[in-house]
Design a protein around this nucleic acid. Structure first.
Length: 459
RNA sequence: GUGGAUGUAGCUCAGUUGGUUAGAGCGCCGGAUUGUGAUUCCGGAGGUCGCCGGUUCAAGCCCGGUCUUCCACCCCA
C-alpha cells in the first residue's frame, strides 16, 4: 500500500461504466451542436503563455497551469534575472515565471478559439460557427463539482452581430436538456443593462465591483451584497439607487415595464432592453426549459459585452451552473483583429454528469456493452462458437467469446458483472445436435434453438 | 491564494483515558454444485492504520510537517 500509485490533485480516472455515461452526454451535446450547423474544432492542450495571460483577469492568471520549459532552463535564462538570483535578490514572480515557462495548459476553450480565428482569418468563412469538446485545466483548489481538469463543450458563432444567434443558442440549450431529460431554467441578462445601472448610480467606473457583488444575490442575500459593495468603495446613495434591481419580479413584459420606468432615460439600457425583448419574442417553445430574465445574473468573465446566459438545473442538488455563455464584442481585438462580435455558450459536462447521476437520468441501456457472450467449453466447441460469433457480429450485434475454457460459474459471473444480457452456450450436446442454448440473464430463462434462430432471439 | 475538517482491508466504516495478536459489513478467492450468474450455506486470503519525523517503557490514538479528499471564502463549468 505504501507504493500505491495515484494521480494529481483534482484529476480523475474514468472507469468504463463512467465513460459510457460521459460519452452519452458528449454525444448528445455534439449531435445537437451539429444539428444547429456548428462544425468541430480542436486546439492544442497547450497555448503560449502570452496567449492566455491577461485574458481572465488577475484571479484567472493565478489559476493558469504553467508548463515548465524543457532543456537548459538555467543556461538560457536572461542574464539580468540570473544575476539577481545569484546575488539572492528578489525577482518579480511574473518575470521569473516568464523565464521558467513559455507555455501553459488551456484555461478555457473561448480564448484559444479567438486565437485560432485571428490566426486563420483568411481561411475562415464568416460567420464562423464552431463547436469544441475538450478538457481544460485550472489550478484551483478542488471541491465538489470543481476539478483541476474538466471538460467544456463550447459552441460559438463569431462574425455576426445578429440577435438571431442568441435566439438559436437559447433553443440549442433547450434542445440539449430536452434530449438529456433534465428540467432547467435558462437565465438571461444583458451587460448593457448592468452598465446602465452603474451609470445611473453615479459610479460607472465601479461596474465590475457592482456586478460581481450583485451576482451573489441568490447565495448571500441583499444585505450581504450591499455590505460587499460598501467594502468595495461604492457610496450609500449609489447602493440606494441600485436597490430596485432586487425587486424586479414577474414575467418579462412586467419586468420590462419596470425597467423602462427606472432606466428608460439611459441609451445603453434602451439598447440592452430592446435586445432582450427581441430574444424573448423570437425564442420558440422550449420543452424542458424555462427562459427567465435575471437582473442579478452577471457572470465573472470580463469579456462579455451583451447578452449573458446561465443555466441551472431544476433537479438534483447542484448549486453551480451547468452551462453558461454570452456575447463578446471584441474578443479577437486583443489578438489584433477588430470588430469581430461573437456569441457562445459552454456546457459543463462534469457537472451535468453529477446531476444526471444524482437524479437517475441516465438511460439504463447505454450501448457499448456486449449483447451476447459465447461460453467457452473447450477447443472444439470454441472453434465452432467462433463461427457463430462472426455471423452475429456481421449482423451488427456486439458479441464476444469467453477466451478461456474455465468453469461455467466464472463465465456467467463475467456476463453478469459486465451486464451482458444473453449467454450462448455451445457444449458437447449442442454441438452434436446443431443447436445453441441461449440464456437470458435477467429472467434466468433458457431455451435451445437452432443456430439460424439465434439472431432473432438476441436482437 | 486564505481559513477549517478528513485519511484504518478493494469499498463503507468501528476501534474505550495511549497498553501486548487492529475488527465488522459488503466485495474478492475457494468449496457445497465437474454445464449456469444475481439468491443460500461453509471456508479462506487481504492492513508496516496516507506518508515522514517527534514525544513515550509503549502510538491507529498525542505533537509537528507533508500529501489526499471534503467544506467555507476567492473565483468558476
Amino acid at each position: 500500500m505504501a507504493n500505491m500509485p495515484s494521480i494529481p490533485k483534482g484529476t480523475r480516472d474514468f472507469s468504463p461504466a463512467e465513460m459510457l455515461r460521459r460519452k452519452y452526454i458528449f454525444n448528445t451535446i455534439e449531435r445537437v451542436f451539429q444539428k444547429y450547423g456548428f462544425l468541430p474544432l480542436e486546439t492544442p492542450a497547450m497555448e503560449k503563455l502570452e496567449t492566455l495571460t491577461g485574458k481572465y483577469g488577475e484571479e484567472g492568471d493565478r489559476l493558469i497551469f504553467k508548463v515548465l520549459n524543457n532543456g537548459d532552463v538555467w543556461g538560457t535564462m536572461d542574464p539580468e534575472v540570473k544575476a539577481k538570483l545569484v546575488k539572492g535578490e528578489e525577482v518579480h514572480p511574473g518575470r521569473l515565471g516568464a523565464e521558467l515557462s513559455g507555455k501553459a495548459l488551456r484555461y478555457d476553450l473561448t480564448v484559444p478559439f479567438a486565437r485560432y480565428v485571428v490566426q486563420h482569418r483568411n481561411e475562415i468563412t464568416f460567420p464562423f460557427k464552431r463547436y469544441q469538446i475538450q478538457p481544460v485545466w485550472r489550478a484551483d483548489r478542488p471541491q465538489k463539482g470543481r476539478y483541476r481538469e474538466f471538460y467544456q463543450c463550447d459552441a460559438d458563432v463569431i462574425g455576426s452581430k445578429s440577435l438571431l444567434n442568441e435566439v438559436e443558442l437559447v433553443e440549442l440549450i433547450g434542445d440539449v436538456f430536452a434530449a438529456l431529460d433534465l428540467q432547467v431554467v435558462i437565465k438571461v441578462n444583458d451587460r448593457k443593462v448592468l452598465s446602465a445601472i452603474a451609470e445611473i448610480s453615479g459610479q460607472p467606473e465601479k461596474v465590475v465591483d457592482m456586478v460581481t457583488a450583485i451576482d451573489k444575490l441568490d447565495k448571500i442575500g441583499q444585505e450581504k451584497v450591499e455590505e460587499e459593495m460598501r467594502a468595495k468603495g461604492i457610496s450609500e446613495p449609489a447602493i440606494a439607487t441600485i436597490a430596485p434591481l432586487f425587486r424586479l419580479s414577474g414575467t418579462w413584459p412586467e419586468q420590462r415595464k419596470k425597467l423602462d420606468k427606472w432606466l428608460g432615460g439611459v441609451p445603453l439600457a434602451q439598447e440592452g432592453l430592446k435586445n432582450l425583448s427581441t430574444v424573448f419574442g423570437a425564442v420558440g417553445p422550449l420543452k424542458n426549459a424555462t427562459l427567465e430574465f435575471d437582473p442579478t445574473l452577471a457572470r465573472g468573465l470580463d469579456y462579455y459585452t451583451g447578452a449573458i446566459f446561465e443555466v441551472k438545473s431544476q433537479e438534483g442538488n447542484m448549486p453551480g451552473s451547468i452551462c453558461g455563455g454570452g456575447r463578446y464584442d471584441d474578443l479577437t481585438g486583443i489578438f489584433g483583429l477588430k470588430d469581430m462580435s461573437g456569441v457562445g455558450i459552454s456546457f459543463g459536462a462534469d457537472r451535468i454528469y453529477d446531476v444526471l447521476l444524482e437524479t437517475n437520468k441516465f438511460p439504463t441501456e447505454l450501448g457499448g456493452s456486449t449483447r451476447v457472450l459465447f461460453a467457452n467449453f473447450g477447443e472444439k466447441e470454441a472453434m465452432y462458437a467462433l463461427k457463430l460469433l462472426r455471423t452475429v457480429r456481421e449482423a451488427g450485434i456486439a458479441a464476444e467469446l469467453y477466451p478461456d475454457a474455465v468453469k461455467m460459474a466464472k463465465q456467467f459471473k463475467y456476463a453478469d458483472d459486465k451486464g451482458i444480457p444473453f449467454v450462448a452456450i455451445i457444449g458437447e450436446n449442442e454441438l452434436k445436435q446443431g443447436i445453441v442454448t441461449v440464456k437470458e440473464m435477467k429472467s434466468g430463462e433458457q431455451k435451445a434453438v437452432k443456430e439460424e434462430d439465434l439472431l432473432s432471439i438476441i436482437s
